[in-house]
């Protein structure tokens, strides 16, 4: 069984809300789907909301990092929102700093931040 993560379009931004635990396969098809959607919509920004996610291991972190870099190559800025305190602490202890990743507290703040960055 394969679950697909829905990707919504709002003006020239894409919004992704990850609602359940990511297994490796879902993570990889999400990467493909997002890049495909960026290509077809020529969106300039992406917000990925991780509020319901209660852990991120090094594999998922790598997929996320890759998605951000690949989106950058395609001309889109990515903001990650809603990383939970427990998730942030485990990432730091794992030694994953996700440098140069733009973050915001929640989806709303994330969209505002994206708008500001796209204007600036």
């Amino acid at each position: 069984m394969k679950m697909r993560i829905p990707i919504l379009k709002l003006k020239d931004c894409l919004i992704v809300s990850i609602q359940w635990e990511l297994d490796d396969q879902t993570a990889i098809s999400f990467q493909e789907d997002l890049l495909e959607k960026l290509h077809t919509t020529s969106a300039r920004g992406v917000v990925i909301d991780l509020t319901p996610i209660d852990f991120i291991d090094s594999f998922i972190a790598k997929v996320l990092g890759d998605v951000i870099n690949m989106s950058g190559l395609m001309g889109a800025k990515v903001v990650i929102t809603g990383i939970q305190p427990a998730v942030a602490i485990t990432l730091i202890e794992l030694g994953i700093r996700l440098e140069n990743v733009s973050t915001a507290l929640d989806l709303e703040n994330g969209l505002e931040k994206l708008e500001r960055e796209l204007e600036g």
């Binding site: 809603g82 990383i83 305190p85 602490i89 730091i92 990743v101 973050t103 915001a104 507290l105 994330g110």
Partner: peptide, 12 residues
């Protein structure tokens, strides 16, 4: 430094 990094991850 770790605390500051973690704060950045949650979006502040």
């Amino acid at each position: 430094i770790q605390a500051a990094d973690a704060v950045r991850l949650v979006g502040a």
